[in-house]
């Protein structure tokens, strides 16, 4: 635990919901609308925390523990991700494995909470979620393996810290392939277009949204906040690779990374504005494609 690292953790906690606002404002801009305020997600979370809740008679404690333990898992995962040159509060050799598996834990619990309602819609969403994530996982871990090889480090903080502009000039193509793979994983893990459409109105076509249909009140607030945080940590990881500003000045480095994360949110918004959701059967091809990008990066790294 270090103080500079705690800053990056608290920044994540503080700013994560802002990303949802940025994405929505970008989409509104493309649609020619004014759009909701940037801080709308904060309002939503706050309002949900003030509410009571309704539970289905079918559900058990598993349903309640899904959002609670899921949020705890992503909070723990956030503690492992650095903000560029500013290290994470916790870092050790192999923390990237813990990071990937904490996100896995969050997903497992969300899926179980969905199955606990006994609704076929939520079963459908759960089934798709495990299908896509099983394919996204190898792409993520292979990508991290390439990163570990390129930077000769085994912790997320160490890897990102060592990723200077010099590494980019040496093996830029590898990092570019890696960034593409990570971006696809980010879109899939956060249920964004082209994998899943967060704005769809039909339960049959949803993935993430349909799994949380029956949650309400503070539970749903936890879910919303957890989703924002998950988007933040994966964006921070991607930006750590793409923005190699390591001047040693924490203000400058931090500002560059924060700007990068906002830019990722804008990019997600642009993707959502420019294309439609893929047909479900096409999504695995996209994810296998991400795996192929990681593999290609690995092959290039082996030369």
């Amino acid at each position: 635990m270090n103080t500079a690292g705690s800053v990056s953790w608290f920044l994540a906690l503080l700013l994560a919901p802002l990303l949802l606002g940025i994405i929505n404002r970008t989409k509104a801009f493309f649609a020619g609308r004014q759009g909701a305020p940037l801080v709308q997600a904060y309002f939503d979370c706050w309002k949900l925390l003030q509410k009571g809740a309704v539970y289905s008679r079918t559900t058990t404690w598993v349903f309640v523990s899904g959002p609670v333990a899921g949020l705890a898992a992503v909070l723990a995962a956030a503690a492992l991700v650095p903000l560029g040159g500013i290290g994470a509060p916790v870092s050790f050799a192999g923390d990237l494995i813990l990071f990937a598996y904490l996100l896995g834990l969050m997903r497992f619990l969300t899926v179980l909470a969905a199955l606990d309602t006994g609704s076929s819609f939520e079963g459908m969403g759960a089934s798709r979620e495990v299908w896509f994530s099983a394919l996204a996982e190898p792409a993520l871990l292979l990508g991290l393996a390439v990163l570990a090889r390129e930077t000769k480090s085994l912790s997320l903080s160490g890897m990102i810290f060592a990723l200077t502009g010099e590494v980019w000039t040496r093996s830029g193509i590898i990092l570019l392939l890696l960034a593409v793979a990570l971006f696809i994983v980010l879109l899939a893990e956060n249920a964004r277009i082209p994998v899943d459409d967060p704005n769809t109105h039909l339960e049959l076509t949803m993935i993430h949204e349909v799994m949380v249909l029956d949650h309400s009140g503070p539970d749903f607030g936890f879910i919303l906040y957890g989703a924002a945080l998950k988007l933040w940590v994966l964006s921070a990881l991607l930006v750590g690779v793409v923005v190699p500003v390591r001047t040693g000045n924490p203000w400058l480095d931090g500002a560059a990374v924060l700007a990068g994360i906002m830019a990722v949110a804008v990019l997600v918004g642009i993707v959502e504005s420019c294309m439609a959701r893929l047909r479900l059967f096409r999504v695995p091809q996209l994810l296998v494609g991400a795996g192929a990008f990681s593999t290609l990066a690995l092959i290039l790294a082996l030369r």
Binding site: A53, S56, G118, F121, P218
Partner: peptide, 22 residues
């Protein structure tokens, strides 16, 4: 977080219903 949730839900209305099926 479980404690926080319990504190938040104390003295609020907790409803029961059937699972949402459109």
């Amino acid at each position: 977080l479980a404690l926080l949730r319990r504190r938040l839900l104390a003295r609020r209305t907790i409803g029961e219903g059937v699972t949402w099926d459109c």
